[in-house]
Computed example of a mutant assay.
Amino acid sequence: MAEKQKNESFQVLRDGFAKARFGGTISGCPLPGTDTPFSFASAEGEENGGLNPEEYVGRIFRILSATVTPYRFFDFRQPGVLKAAVPLFEKLTLYANHSIDVTRWKGFTQGPLWDDQNDPQGINCLLAVDKIIDPSLARGVETGALRACSVTIWFEFEKSHPNLDYYWSRLGEVVDGEVVRLIVTKITNAGEVSIVWEGEDPYAKALEAGASGAPDHNNTEEEKDMKLTAATMALLGIAAGTELSAELLEGKINETVTGLKTKIAGLEPEAQLGKQLLEETRTRAETLYKVLKGEGALERFITGVIRTADLATARALCEEYEQAVESKVPLACPKCGEKLKRQSSRPAPEGHAAGGKRAADYKL
């Protein structure tokens, strides 16, 4: 993962500042690893949040939790960070699947508050789904068929190991007794909340390894069965039906990565030659263009088109400009007037091979 990592759910906007989506769960769902469901009454203490039940379905959701997210390793446990952000979630627009459009709104948020009654603590909020706008979505939330949400936030963060090399690719590793993670220090803004079929679980069990918060990789009782798609197994060279293990998977990944690195190393010389050829072709196209246009040459065309052209385009430009220049300013011998051909390289003298050698030099 590059330092300027960017995708649909996570985007680093500048050093130490990012935009990302995080998942939440509806009240009544059990916390992972326990038999105790997360439970919280309406923010107003009234059924359906005090909303007209003929128009709205109102349900309490946990928006964000003071824990470490299990897949991307964002740490929301800094004291006061989540609690200070509670007001940001008041009256946000509700959407479905992050389809953000003024014509696709589904409802709104209401009454966000700090929840210190459940473990982990976090931000709860009532999501009000408009039955008239989307009766199907409202029915899904009302019956519990839809019970996950996802929120977009902007936030400041710090790296848990600032001097660690290859940081982004090592998130989740344990280094010096602590899990490599991104520590959220301030939530600056909240965008929208969406009902989704399944979001990233914010209730993931706190990372265990004493006070460090590092995951316990030796806890085999909580290990899940390893599953890969058929396409992924084929890509790694694992036969269908093979019983997977951590050792097998690690070996196949190392084998695949090593093979790719070898191929890349073998292609580097050709890539350099190709790059050199491209630059030479662009330079020739630029020279011909300037000769053809004279004072009328446009610098913005040179920088925006010629210097950014791919090889095929650069060659086409050369061919076009060569024909135009030849027609406009034909090249001729100053002594005899014989027409000459413009070339980007000088041919070897007759009877000589490239490099200054004569054909006779190669006879036995």
Score class of each variant (00 low, 15 high):
98 H>C: 06
112 P>L: 07
96 A>Y: 12
151 V>F: 01
210 G>S: 04
174 V>F: 07
106 K>E: 06
103 T>P: 00
92 L>S: 04
184 V>P: 02
113 L>S: 07
140 G>K: 01
186 K>A: 11
182 L>Q: 14
195 I>D: 00
228 L>S: 04
102 V>E: 13
173 E>M: 12
225 D>L: 14
185 T>Y: 07
116 D>M: 05
150 S>P: 02
213 G>E: 04
107 G>L: 02
84 A>V: 05
122 G>H: 01
179 V>Q: 13
219 N>C: 04
110 Q>A: 13
164 L>H: 06
175 V>M: 03
89 F>Q: 07
196 V>S: 02
213 G>K: 09
169 S>R: 14
201 D>I: 05
89 F>C: 06
159 K>S: 05
149 C>A: 03
202 P>I: 07
188 T>Y: 08
193 V>D: 00
108 F>G: 02
208 E>G: 12
178 E>M: 14
108 F>H: 11
208 E>S: 15
221 E>P: 00
177 G>N: 08
146 L>G: 02
216 D>E: 13
111 G>V: 05
188 T>K: 10
181 R>Q: 13
85 A>F: 03
126 L>A: 14
122 G>N: 01
133 I>G: 00
117 Q>R: 13
196 V>G: 03
98 H>L: 10
191 G>I: 14
219 N>I: 05
85 A>S: 06
157 F>E: 09
109 T>S: 15
116 D>T: 06
96 A>H: 11
86 V>C: 00
121 Q>T: 09
152 T>Q: 08
138 A>D: 03
218 N>V: 02
123 I>N: 00
131 K>Y: 09
204 A>E: 11
147 R>M: 08
192 E>T: 15
156 E>V: 06
112 P>N: 05
181 R>F: 10
198 E>W: 14
148 A>M: 11
96 A>T: 12
164 L>D: 07
125 C>A: 04
204 A>Q: 11
224 K>S: 08
197 W>H: 08
124 N>L: 13
134 D>W: 12
213 G>A: 07
141 V>F: 01
216 D>K: 09
140 G>D: 04
194 S>N: 09
213 G>F: 10
153 I>R: 02
130 D>I: 05
141 V>T: 02
137 L>W: 04
162 P>H: 14
190 A>Y: 13
225 D>M: 10
108 F>M: 12
213 G>W: 11
229 T>Q: 04
197 W>A: 05
85 A>T: 02
141 V>I: 14
179 V>I: 15
210 G>W: 12
224 K>E: 07
130 D>P: 00
221 E>Q: 12
186 K>E: 14
211 A>W: 07
137 L>V: 09
100 I>F: 08
226 M>H: 03
190 A>L: 15
90 E>G: 03
90 E>A: 11
157 F>M: 13
